[in-house]
């Protein structure tokens, strides 16, 4: 499951190339493990980003549950730090898509391109549960 899928990798490379300001893209499982990523990100940084992005999304969902409409839905998490911007959106079941961009990137465009990719191929950006759903504790 952690082996990079060459077709997905190609789509991520394509996303980064066609989006001004975008530098790296990563698909991660909700429990914080990389599924596939653009080559320039590198394995070690992909592992780090997967864990960070899963944590950010989990906290964003908690913010949504407590202070949003209660469904826990998150459209996008965006962190502007000194030297870059991190975007995360939900992808297919059990997975998130993260993009690292330059500080001066067009945030609207990047968000749009990410949504577009998820819409097209979200069904392939998944990481299914290890256990059948019915065995989950209440």
């Amino acid at each position: 499951m952690t082996t990079t899928n060459p077709n997905l990798e190609w789509l991520l490379e394509n996303l980064v190339e066609s989006t001004p300001g975008a530098n790296h893209a990563l698909v991660l499982s909700r429990d914080g493990l990389k599924l596939c990523h653009t080559r320039a990100l590198g394995i070690d940084r992909a592992d780090q980003l997967a864990a960070i992005a899963a944590g950010v999304q989990a906290l964003s969902q908690s913010a949504s549950v407590e202070f949003g409409d209660g469904t826990g839905g998150v459209r996008q998490s965006m962190t502007e730090f000194h030297g870059g911007v991190l975007f995360i959106v939900e992808a297919g079941e059990g997975a998130h898509l993260a993009v690292l961009a330059s500080e001066d990137a067009d945030v609207g465009l990047i968000g749009h391109k990410m949504d577009e990719l998820v819409e097209q191929i979200g069904a392939f950006l998944t990481s299914p549960p290890r256990h059948p759903r019915h065995s989950q504790p209440a």
Binding site: M1, S29, R30, D31, L33, G55, G94, S127, P129, R130
Partner: peptide
């Protein structure tokens, strides 16, 4: 609560 379902990526 920041629990997530454990996925097959973690096997």
């Amino acid at each position: 609560n920041t629990e997530e379902t454990m996925t097959q990526a973690g096997l």
